[in-house]
Simulated assay, not measured.
Amino acid sequence: MLSTPDYPSQAPRRPLRLQHCLLCALLLLGSSNLLAKTELSKPAAAETPPTFTSRQAALSALPPLMLWVGERPDDVRTWIDGSARQGKGAADSPVPSIQDQRMGVAVLDTTVLLRDGSASVRRRQQPLKLPPAWYAQNGLQQKAPVVTIVHIEMARAAHKPALNEKQKRTIVNAVVAAATRSPSQVVQLDFEVMHSQKPFLADVVKRSRDALPANVALSITALASWCVGDAWLADLPADEVVPTAFHMDGEAKRLRDVLDHDGRFPRPECQPSLGLSLDEQPWPSKLRSQRLYLFNRNAWSGTPMAGWSVRLGAIFP
């Protein structure tokens, strides 16, 4: 049988209980310090700017002057930067902040074509340059004064639209989708109809309002004639009505006389906002609307602001 070798005898070891506890305490203390340092070294999460809590707040935050931008390549930076309020410290900050803007843009986001019984949706294809200060890391900042527009086109003659249920749903879905791309939480429906088509438009507006979040405002454009003696707009759940006081055809003189006399249209729902065009002059001598939308048949990038600054300054000093 193999025998066990003889090893030198060792002195008995002292109990390590106290040493072990002290070592554990030191390790725990060091670990907690390390964790604390690690947590402090983490980059702070970027805070998302709060959204407007109500559609009334979103609408009231829009600047007093809005530029309509159609489906064309455009650059509105010269107009936007030139209109900024010179607030405190403006000399030290050449790039105006969103809060300093006196001008915003309402940009064509989606076009819906109604033809026969169908409805086709086309998103904006042309680029638009906006002030760099309006952008965050992942796109436009929340609350940037940009309104998205859904424009409805209707085929004529042999392809006159049926104005059916499918077409209603397509328009409402387009409005809801455009609202998700609106940093201002305001979406605008641009839809001109004949008298016999008013019930269709009214139902589209009601359904759109029901489908939109409660804190998103719904703006609609309106023929100027709808704002003189015609009360049907009062029943629509639109948060803003923008009467287009240009391209008024046969009623132009009568409607312009109304504006020249009072500075706004008589229907209450049509009074807070007004749409004018650069190519139809002179404008009414006095304007009492709180917000003005401007239409330009040409690109804003090709329209020098210098020629309009005095006129616009007289309206919104």
Rank of each mutant, 00 (worst) to 15 (best):
S9L: 12
A177T: 02
R123L: 14
W300L: 08
K253L: 13
P145W: 02
S219N: 11
T4V: 15
P15C: 15
P73E: 04
L23M: 14
S9I: 11
R72N: 07
D92Q: 14
S60V: 10
D249W: 03
E192F: 12
F246T: 02
A90W: 12
K253I: 14
Q99R: 12
W226D: 09
P161G: 06
S309C: 05
A224V: 05
V176R: 11
L27N: 09
R256L: 11
E280I: 02
N215K: 03
R123G: 13
I80L: 15
V107G: 01
W134L: 07
P131W: 00
R122Q: 09
S273A: 15
H151Q: 10
S273V: 08
K168W: 05
M1W: 08
P64E: 09
A202N: 07
D262I: 08
K198M: 12
S97F: 04
W308K: 09
V150P: 03
P304I: 01
T244W: 02
S196E: 15
P237F: 09
Y293I: 13
T48L: 14
R264G: 03
L236T: 07
R72P: 07
L18A: 13
G117W: 00
L18N: 10
V242E: 00
G307V: 07
T170Q: 04
A44R: 15
P268T: 12
V216R: 01
K160T: 13
D6S: 06
I149G: 00
L67E: 06
N33L: 09
A144G: 06
P199N: 01
V121R: 06
V186I: 06
T53C: 13
R169V: 14
L27H: 01
R267Y: 00
G30I: 04
W283Q: 05
